[in-house]
Amino acid sequence: MATDRAPRPRPAWVSQILLTVVLLCYLFPFVWMVATALKPADEIFRKPPTLVGSRLEWANFAGALDHLPLWRLLWNSVFTSALGALLVVVVSVPAAYAFARLRFRGSNALFVCFLGTLMVPQEVIVTPMFLLTRELGWDNSYQALVLPWAFTAFGTFLLRQFFRTIPVELEEAAMLDGASRPRVLWSVIVPIARPAIAVLAVFTFLTYWNSFLWPLVIVSSMDMATVPLGLQMFLGQSGNRWDLLMAAATLAVVPMVVVVLLLQRHLVRGIALSGLGGR
Protein backbone atom coordinates (compact mmCIF):
# COMPACT_ATOMS: atom_id res chain seq x y z
CA MET A 1 0.00 0.00 0.00
CA ALA A 2 2.75 2.39 0.97
CA THR A 3 4.46 1.94 -2.39
CA ASP A 4 1.30 3.24 -4.08
CA ARG A 5 1.49 6.55 -2.28
CA ALA A 6 2.60 9.54 -4.27
CA PRO A 7 6.08 10.70 -3.20
CA ARG A 8 5.89 13.47 -0.63
CA PRO A 9 6.51 16.83 -2.27
CA ARG A 10 9.57 18.69 -1.11
CA PRO A 11 8.75 21.29 1.50
CA ALA A 12 8.08 24.65 -0.10
CA TRP A 13 11.10 26.35 1.43
CA VAL A 14 13.55 23.84 -0.06
CA SER A 15 12.04 24.43 -3.47
CA GLN A 16 12.23 28.16 -2.91
CA ILE A 17 15.91 28.12 -1.91
CA LEU A 18 16.89 25.88 -4.84
CA LEU A 19 15.01 28.13 -7.23
CA THR A 20 16.76 31.19 -5.82
CA VAL A 21 20.15 29.54 -6.34
CA VAL A 22 19.22 28.73 -9.95
CA LEU A 23 18.05 32.31 -10.47
CA LEU A 24 21.31 33.73 -9.10
CA CYS A 25 23.33 31.50 -11.46
CA TYR A 26 21.06 32.61 -14.26
CA LEU A 27 21.67 36.27 -13.51
CA PHE A 28 25.42 35.73 -13.08
CA PRO A 29 26.34 37.26 -16.48
CA PHE A 30 24.77 40.52 -15.32
CA VAL A 31 26.69 40.34 -12.04
CA TRP A 32 29.92 39.75 -13.96
CA MET A 33 29.06 42.63 -16.28
CA VAL A 34 28.73 45.09 -13.38
CA ALA A 35 31.80 43.64 -11.65
CA THR A 36 33.90 44.00 -14.81
CA ALA A 37 32.60 47.52 -15.38
CA LEU A 38 34.01 48.45 -11.96
CA LYS A 39 37.47 46.90 -12.41
CA PRO A 40 40.69 48.58 -13.52
CA ALA A 41 41.43 47.58 -17.12
CA ASP A 42 44.48 45.44 -16.30
CA GLU A 43 42.62 43.32 -13.74
CA ILE A 44 39.80 42.06 -15.97
CA PHE A 45 41.50 38.83 -17.05
CA ARG A 46 43.00 37.81 -13.72
CA LYS A 47 43.61 34.21 -12.76
CA PRO A 48 41.84 33.02 -10.69
CA PRO A 49 38.94 35.35 -11.46
CA THR A 50 37.84 37.68 -8.69
CA LEU A 51 34.54 39.48 -8.49
CA VAL A 52 36.02 42.73 -7.22
CA GLY A 53 39.24 44.31 -8.35
CA SER A 54 41.84 46.07 -6.19
CA ARG A 55 39.68 49.20 -6.33
CA LEU A 56 36.31 50.25 -7.70
CA GLU A 57 36.94 52.04 -10.97
CA TRP A 58 33.92 54.32 -11.24
CA ALA A 59 35.78 56.31 -13.89
CA ASN A 60 34.94 53.53 -16.40
CA PHE A 61 31.40 54.86 -16.58
CA ALA A 62 32.60 58.37 -17.36
CA GLY A 63 34.99 56.84 -19.90
CA ALA A 64 32.17 54.90 -21.56
CA LEU A 65 30.09 58.05 -21.81
CA ASP A 66 33.07 59.85 -23.39
CA HIS A 67 33.48 57.26 -26.14
CA LEU A 68 29.85 56.38 -26.65
CA PRO A 69 26.98 58.89 -26.95
CA LEU A 70 24.91 56.67 -24.69
CA TRP A 71 22.14 59.16 -23.94
CA ARG A 72 21.71 59.77 -27.63
CA LEU A 73 21.56 56.00 -28.28
CA LEU A 74 19.04 55.48 -25.49
CA TRP A 75 16.95 58.33 -26.81
CA ASN A 76 17.06 56.92 -30.35
CA SER A 77 16.01 53.49 -29.10
CA VAL A 78 13.25 54.73 -26.82
CA PHE A 79 11.96 57.21 -29.39
CA THR A 80 11.83 54.80 -32.32
CA SER A 81 10.43 51.96 -30.18
CA ALA A 82 7.73 54.15 -28.66
CA LEU A 83 6.83 55.70 -32.00
CA GLY A 84 6.72 52.25 -33.59
CA ALA A 85 4.46 50.90 -30.85
CA LEU A 86 2.16 53.92 -31.10
CA LEU A 87 1.95 53.69 -34.88
CA VAL A 88 1.24 49.97 -34.83
CA VAL A 89 -1.58 50.48 -32.33
CA VAL A 90 -3.05 53.43 -34.22
CA VAL A 91 -3.22 51.60 -37.55
CA SER A 92 -4.02 48.14 -36.18
CA VAL A 93 -6.98 49.04 -33.96
CA PRO A 94 -9.27 50.36 -36.73
CA ALA A 95 -8.11 47.71 -39.21
CA ALA A 96 -8.75 44.94 -36.69
CA TYR A 97 -12.19 46.36 -35.93
CA ALA A 98 -13.07 46.44 -39.62
CA PHE A 99 -12.11 42.78 -39.98
CA ALA A 100 -13.87 41.77 -36.77
CA ARG A 101 -17.18 43.54 -37.22
CA LEU A 102 -17.77 45.31 -40.52
CA ARG A 103 -19.22 43.49 -43.49
CA PHE A 104 -17.78 44.70 -46.74
CA ARG A 105 -16.94 43.24 -50.09
CA GLY A 106 -13.61 41.43 -50.24
CA SER A 107 -13.12 41.36 -46.48
CA ASN A 108 -12.31 37.66 -46.43
CA ALA A 109 -9.90 37.84 -49.35
CA LEU A 110 -8.12 40.81 -47.81
CA PHE A 111 -7.89 39.12 -44.42
CA VAL A 112 -6.43 35.96 -45.92
CA CYS A 113 -3.91 38.16 -47.71
CA PHE A 114 -2.96 39.63 -44.33
CA LEU A 115 -2.70 36.24 -42.68
CA GLY A 116 -0.51 34.96 -45.47
CA THR A 117 2.20 37.44 -44.55
CA LEU A 118 2.20 36.57 -40.83
CA MET A 119 4.95 34.06 -41.39
CA VAL A 120 7.13 36.14 -43.69
CA PRO A 121 10.43 36.60 -41.87
CA GLN A 122 12.07 39.99 -41.85
CA GLU A 123 15.03 38.66 -43.81
CA VAL A 124 12.92 37.95 -46.87
CA ILE A 125 12.08 41.59 -47.34
CA VAL A 126 15.14 43.22 -45.81
CA THR A 127 16.97 43.49 -49.14
CA PRO A 128 14.17 45.15 -51.15
CA MET A 129 13.29 47.23 -48.07
CA PHE A 130 16.86 48.52 -48.07
CA LEU A 131 16.62 49.38 -51.77
CA LEU A 132 13.20 51.01 -51.21
CA THR A 133 14.28 53.18 -48.28
CA ARG A 134 17.36 54.30 -50.21
CA GLU A 135 15.11 55.08 -53.15
CA LEU A 136 12.98 57.22 -50.82
CA GLY A 137 16.14 58.94 -49.57
CA TRP A 138 15.48 57.77 -46.03
CA ASP A 139 18.68 55.96 -45.14
CA ASN A 140 20.07 56.92 -41.76
CA SER A 141 16.79 58.45 -40.56
CA TYR A 142 14.12 57.87 -37.93
CA GLN A 143 11.42 57.18 -40.52
CA ALA A 144 13.58 54.42 -41.97
CA LEU A 145 13.93 52.85 -38.53
CA VAL A 146 10.21 53.04 -37.72
CA LEU A 147 7.94 53.04 -40.76
CA PRO A 148 8.92 49.89 -42.69
CA TRP A 149 7.96 47.57 -39.81
CA ALA A 150 4.81 49.29 -38.55
CA PHE A 151 2.34 47.70 -40.96
CA THR A 152 2.58 44.02 -40.17
CA ALA A 153 -0.41 41.73 -39.95
CA PHE A 154 0.41 40.57 -36.43
CA GLY A 155 -1.25 43.41 -34.53
CA THR A 156 -4.34 43.36 -36.72
CA PHE A 157 -4.69 39.63 -36.24
CA LEU A 158 -4.16 39.74 -32.47
CA LEU A 159 -6.68 42.53 -31.93
CA ARG A 160 -9.25 41.07 -34.31
CA GLN A 161 -9.24 37.86 -32.30
CA PHE A 162 -9.75 39.85 -29.12
CA PHE A 163 -12.47 42.14 -30.57
CA ARG A 164 -14.46 39.11 -31.64
CA THR A 165 -14.77 37.98 -28.03
CA ILE A 166 -16.56 41.24 -27.12
CA PRO A 167 -20.38 40.79 -27.14
CA VAL A 168 -21.96 42.50 -30.17
CA GLU A 169 -24.89 43.67 -27.99
CA LEU A 170 -22.71 46.35 -26.41
CA GLU A 171 -22.13 47.97 -29.79
CA GLU A 172 -25.72 47.56 -30.93
CA ALA A 173 -26.92 49.41 -27.87
CA ALA A 174 -24.57 52.28 -28.63
CA MET A 175 -25.55 52.30 -32.32
CA LEU A 176 -29.25 52.46 -31.42
CA ASP A 177 -28.39 55.57 -29.42
CA GLY A 178 -27.09 57.01 -32.68
CA ALA A 179 -23.36 56.48 -32.23
CA SER A 180 -21.30 56.22 -35.41
CA ARG A 181 -18.82 53.40 -36.05
CA PRO A 182 -15.74 55.46 -35.11
CA ARG A 183 -17.56 56.58 -31.96
CA VAL A 184 -18.44 52.94 -31.09
CA LEU A 185 -14.86 51.88 -31.66
CA TRP A 186 -13.45 54.64 -29.52
CA SER A 187 -15.86 54.59 -26.59
CA VAL A 188 -17.07 50.98 -26.47
CA ILE A 189 -14.43 48.71 -27.96
CA VAL A 190 -11.15 50.41 -27.09
CA PRO A 191 -11.84 50.67 -23.34
CA ILE A 192 -12.73 46.97 -23.17
CA ALA A 193 -9.76 45.94 -25.27
CA ARG A 194 -7.26 48.02 -23.32
CA PRO A 195 -5.33 44.99 -21.96
CA ALA A 196 -4.91 43.49 -25.43
CA ILE A 197 -3.87 46.84 -26.85
CA ALA A 198 -1.36 47.27 -24.03
CA VAL A 199 0.12 43.85 -24.74
CA LEU A 200 0.42 44.68 -28.44
CA ALA A 201 2.10 47.98 -27.58
CA VAL A 202 4.57 46.37 -25.18
CA PHE A 203 5.49 43.54 -27.54
CA THR A 204 5.89 45.93 -30.47
CA PHE A 205 8.07 48.16 -28.33
CA LEU A 206 10.25 45.18 -27.45
CA THR A 207 10.48 44.09 -31.08
CA TYR A 208 11.76 47.51 -32.11
CA TRP A 209 13.96 47.73 -29.01
CA ASN A 210 15.68 44.43 -29.78
CA SER A 211 15.81 44.94 -33.53
CA PHE A 212 19.40 44.63 -34.74
CA LEU A 213 19.57 43.46 -38.35
CA TRP A 214 17.58 46.40 -39.75
CA PRO A 215 19.41 49.21 -37.91
CA LEU A 216 22.68 47.53 -38.89
CA VAL A 217 21.60 47.66 -42.53
CA ILE A 218 20.06 51.12 -42.67
CA VAL A 219 21.94 53.24 -40.11
CA SER A 220 25.50 54.31 -40.86
CA SER A 221 26.29 56.94 -38.23
CA MET A 222 26.59 56.79 -34.47
CA ASP A 223 24.16 59.67 -33.88
CA MET A 224 21.30 57.74 -35.52
CA ALA A 225 22.22 54.39 -33.98
CA THR A 226 20.03 52.51 -31.52
CA VAL A 227 21.49 51.00 -28.35
CA PRO A 228 22.31 47.55 -29.82
CA LEU A 229 23.83 49.06 -32.94
CA GLY A 230 25.79 51.70 -30.99
CA LEU A 231 27.30 49.01 -28.77
CA GLN A 232 28.18 46.99 -31.86
CA MET A 233 29.87 50.03 -33.46
CA PHE A 234 31.77 50.71 -30.23
CA LEU A 235 32.83 47.06 -30.12
CA GLY A 236 34.14 47.39 -33.66
CA GLN A 237 36.08 50.60 -32.93
CA SER A 238 37.66 49.66 -29.64
CA GLY A 239 37.57 45.90 -29.45
CA ASN A 240 39.67 45.50 -26.32
CA ARG A 241 38.41 48.25 -24.00
CA TRP A 242 36.38 45.67 -22.11
CA ASP A 243 36.16 47.90 -19.04
CA LEU A 244 34.45 50.67 -21.02
CA LEU A 245 32.32 48.20 -22.98
CA MET A 246 31.03 46.61 -19.77
CA ALA A 247 30.31 50.03 -18.30
CA ALA A 248 28.37 50.93 -21.45
CA ALA A 249 26.53 47.61 -21.37
CA THR A 250 25.64 48.18 -17.72
CA LEU A 251 24.21 51.60 -18.49
CA ALA A 252 22.18 50.07 -21.35
CA VAL A 253 20.87 47.21 -19.22
CA VAL A 254 19.83 49.16 -16.13
CA PRO A 255 16.80 50.93 -17.66
CA MET A 256 15.36 47.57 -18.73
CA VAL A 257 15.84 46.13 -15.24
CA VAL A 258 13.80 49.00 -13.86
CA VAL A 259 11.08 48.58 -16.50
CA VAL A 260 10.79 44.82 -15.98
CA LEU A 261 10.61 45.18 -12.20
CA LEU A 262 7.91 47.83 -12.53
CA LEU A 263 5.89 45.74 -14.99
CA GLN A 264 6.38 42.38 -13.25
CA ARG A 265 2.75 42.06 -12.18
CA HIS A 266 1.49 42.61 -15.72
CA LEU A 267 3.86 40.35 -17.67
CA VAL A 268 2.01 37.06 -17.30
CA ARG A 269 -1.45 38.57 -16.96
CA GLY A 270 -1.00 40.48 -20.19
CA ILE A 271 -0.18 37.33 -22.11
CA ALA A 272 -3.11 35.48 -20.55
CA LEU A 273 -5.56 38.31 -21.30
CA SER A 274 -4.52 38.88 -24.87
CA GLY A 275 -4.67 35.22 -25.83
CA LEU A 276 -1.12 35.52 -27.12
CA GLY A 277 -0.21 32.19 -25.58
CA GLY A 278 -2.16 30.15 -28.10
CA ARG A 279 -5.43 29.94 -26.24
Partner: peptide, 22 residues
Amino acid sequence: GLYRALFFLPAVTPLVANAVVW
Protein backbone atom coordinates in the same frame (compact mmCIF):
# COMPACT_ATOMS: atom_id res chain seq x y z
CA GLY B 1 5.96 37.49 -10.24
CA LEU B 2 9.45 38.57 -9.27
CA TYR B 3 11.02 35.22 -10.22
CA ARG B 4 9.25 35.23 -13.58
CA ALA B 5 10.29 38.84 -14.23
CA LEU B 6 13.94 38.16 -13.40
CA PHE B 7 14.13 35.07 -15.61
CA PHE B 8 12.54 37.21 -18.33
CA LEU B 9 15.13 39.97 -17.91
CA PRO B 10 17.74 38.81 -20.49
CA ALA B 11 14.97 38.74 -23.11
CA VAL B 12 14.61 42.51 -22.96
CA THR B 13 18.09 43.75 -22.19
CA PRO B 14 19.78 44.93 -25.41
CA LEU B 15 20.94 41.78 -27.11
CA VAL B 16 24.26 43.21 -28.17
CA ALA B 17 24.91 44.04 -24.51
CA ASN B 18 24.10 40.43 -23.65
CA ALA B 19 26.41 39.11 -26.35
CA VAL B 20 29.25 41.41 -25.31
CA VAL B 21 28.99 40.23 -21.69
CA TRP B 22 29.17 36.61 -22.86
